[in-house]
Design a protein around this nucleic acid. Structure first.
Lengths: 205, 205
DNA sequence: GTCTATAATTTGATAGAC
DNA sequence: GTCTATCAAATTATAGAC
């Protein structure tokens, strides 16, 4: 039996658990529903993951591990800051739009349980990435290519402008009185719009 | 017996329910916990609100009714667009920072149940407000005070920049490696920072 | 209107056969 | 490893006394 086949059930369970947990959260998810989605018996969930809490933690870690590199890899390239921003808004909005449950899932569960899951975050976001970004910005300020800006606010700006319209999609669709298709088109426009917006604001001349 | 005293229990229940539901969501909230917080018996919850679902809907409607005017009132003043933006970022960040559970509560529960609660939203956000904003923007574009901008993207920008850093506070505090106090200070700075950021981007000359 | 007691149901978890 | 059957605890909801 191959290693893949050997652990086939385990990965079926994890995939199903991702779907259900990310959609309904820890409290709303039902072990029975996960088992049904995986096409196996409920007892198997406990055989492989012992408890709902343990299964949830596996899903949470996989979500962080999936999304963190999307942020970090862009910052770590050698491209110019403007290209990083353009690259990021395009790739990141595409990604979270496809996996639109993940950011809200992380935000929610971290609010409910701020400490227990810190390991997953510490492992994936280290300070060196932020320091690298800060140095790059300081450098461009010195060269008078951009205004004197705060890297932390800039980071928050970019993330906010990309993520919020996606996670608040059902609410904003109603407030703006759009169809789902129309709102989807607005999100697509933002891949370029957000980058232009940010770059326009920070660049000198 | 005064009308206030007559319904004292009912309002004790609603206040307690707001706390618990907004903190833990529909699925995580427990009727017993709400009763304990209200200082009355669990049976009273059902006497006044029949079911958990009905009590939840009362809380949801009150949250929408509390937050919607904060957006609408600012747009409806006769002030210049720039002053509206400055006024909004200041007042809105102050408000949601104080009631930081409300935006996430609304976003979450609307995701889980997009249709049932639409009444509460339709009642509070009507199209005339957005049309008024659009006319004002068109007017300023014609006067060449601001660039040609899309009012819907602008609306999303302002809301995103104000709300996201607050609702993602536990996550962003960790990613930016801040203490709670330091992050709180960053949020405070944004009351002015966000307005400057937006105005700087849209104004001509 | 308010309480105690309890019904009815759901759900995470386990025992034990195969 | 996988399944069926079942337990034990938690939780919403209600009945009925006061």
């Amino acid at each position: 039996m191959t290693k893949l086949a050997k652990h086939k059930t385990e990965s079926l369970i994890l995939d199903a658990a991702k779907d259900i947990f990310q959609q309904k959260g820890m409290d709303g998810a039902r072990m029975q529903e996960i088992a049904d989605k995986a096409g196996i018996n409920k007892a198997m969930l406990h055989y492989y993951y012992r408890s709902k809490q343990k299964l949830f933690e596996a899903v949470f870690k996989s979500a962080i591990t999936l999304i963190a590199p999307k942020v970090i890899d862009v910052i770590n390239t050698d491209a110019h800051l403007f290209d990083k921003i353009r690259n990021f808004t395009d790739k990141y909005i595409t990604f979270i739009n496809k996996h639109s449950y993940i950011p809200l899932f992380i935000i929610n569960e971290l609010r409910r349980n701020p400490d227990v899951l810190k390991t997953a975050i510490d492992t994936n976001f280290d300070t060196s990435v932020r320091e690298k970004l800060q140095r790059e910005i300081d450098d461009l300020i010195a060269k008078k290519e951009i205004k004197k800006i705060d890297s932390e606010h800039l980071f928050l700006d970019v993330i906010s402008l990309c993520v919020f319209p996606v996670i608040a999609k059902p609410l904003m669709t109603k407030i703006l009185d759009k169809t789902n298709k129309e709102y989807h088109e607005i999100i697509n426009q933002r891949k370029k719009y957000v980058a232009d917006f940010i770059i326009n604001t920070i660049k000198l001349k």
